[in-house]
Every structure is written in structure tokens, then in C-alpha cells.
Amino acid sequence: MDSEFDAIAVDLVARGATLGQMMGHPMLKVGSSMFAAFTGDGHLAVKLGRSTAEHADALALPGARLWAPGGGARVFYDWVSLPPDQEDQWMRFAEAGRLLVSR
């Protein structure tokens, strides 16, 4: 796992999230709703909701893209994959994702 993801996970678990696994990768959820996943290519994928300002802000970051788990053809349009060189932004968007699924 990545040390930045580990730090985010500790912080968000303290706020009510739980840590789990999805397709062999660590992920965070609230209840049964997943909102963040550390991907095999070192990205953080975050559920932000395609019509939110946070989604638009995340996609505007260099290297960010819509998330297609496993690099497949199926795109999760509510999710943004944030690259490792944007780690300083990960917590901001992970918290936005947690709040989104907590509603």
C-alpha cells in the first residue's frame, strides 16, 4: 500500500469510514457504499458524483481521469482517478467522497 493512502485511511476511519478490499485492492467505504480505492497503478480513485463541483475540480488536475477499474472498457462516470503526483490533493477529494456517500 501507499503511505499517503495509509494516512488517509487512518484519518477517515476515525471519521466513521471502514477499510476493506475490492478486487484485491484496499478501499474505503461508509456502510456498504465505497467511496475511495487505492488502485493497482498507484492512483486513488474517488467517488465524487459526476454533477458535483468536486468532480469537475478533480478532473481538472493534471493526470486525473475518469476511473475504469482494471483499465477496462467500463467507465465509472461518478469516479475520478487521481494520479500519484497529485497525492497532496488526495485527502481533500477522499473526504468529499466520504461526505457524498454519507448523505
Rank of each mutant, 00 (worst) to 15 (best):
79 W>A: 01
24 G>H: 08
94 A>F: 08
2 D>C: 06
28 L>A: 00
87 E>W: 09
20 G>F: 11
29 K>H: 04
45 A>L: 14
51 S>K: 15
62 P>C: 08
103 R>C: 00
89 Q>I: 13
87 E>V: 15
56 A>G: 08
65 R>K: 06
73 A>V: 11
9 A>D: 09
92 R>Y: 12
76 F>Q: 10
23 M>C: 02
93 F>P: 13
90 W>K: 02
99 L>V: 14
64 A>I: 14
36 A>Q: 10
38 F>L: 08
32 S>V: 01
47 K>T: 02
42 G>Y: 04
25 H>T: 05
30 V>L: 06
86 Q>C: 11
97 G>N: 00
36 A>D: 12
5 F>T: 02
98 R>P: 00
71 G>Y: 05
2 D>T: 15
40 G>T: 04
11 D>S: 03
9 A>W: 08
5 F>K: 00
86 Q>M: 13
49 G>C: 02
28 L>P: 01
44 L>I: 13
68 A>N: 10
74 R>K: 12
79 W>L: 00
1 M>H: 08
74 R>S: 08
74 R>C: 03
103 R>A: 00
31 G>W: 04
48 L>D: 00
1 M>N: 02
100 L>G: 00
41 D>F: 13
46 V>L: 06
15 R>A: 01
88 D>S: 14
27 M>C: 14
51 S>L: 14
44 L>P: 04
74 R>D: 11
94 A>G: 02
2 D>R: 15
7 A>W: 02
69 P>L: 10
68 A>Y: 06
82 L>V: 14
22 M>D: 06
29 K>W: 11
7 A>R: 11
91 M>P: 00
100 L>T: 03
81 S>A: 12
49 G>I: 04
49 G>E: 01
37 A>S: 10
70 G>T: 09
1 M>A: 06
11 D>N: 00
8 I>Y: 04
38 F>H: 09
21 Q>A: 08
90 W>E: 02
98 R>E: 12
61 L>N: 11
39 T>V: 03
101 V>M: 04
49 G>H: 02
102 S>W: 07
72 G>H: 13
19 L>Y: 14
99 L>M: 07
38 F>V: 10
59 L>P: 07
49 G>A: 01
101 V>C: 05
89 Q>P: 11
86 Q>N: 07
96 A>L: 05
97 G>L: 05
20 G>M: 09
73 A>G: 08
74 R>Q: 12
19 L>D: 13
40 G>C: 04
70 G>S: 09
23 M>P: 02
97 G>A: 06
62 P>W: 12
71 G>N: 09
94 A>W: 04
68 A>K: 07
31 G>C: 01
57 D>Y: 15
53 A>M: 15
25 H>Y: 03
10 V>N: 05
9 A>F: 12
75 V>Q: 01
87 E>R: 15
14 A>T: 15
83 P>Q: 09
37 A>Y: 01
48 L>V: 04
81 S>C: 10
18 T>H: 10
74 R>A: 05
15 R>C: 02
64 A>M: 11
84 P>D: 05
27 M>R: 14
18 T>M: 06
44 L>E: 03
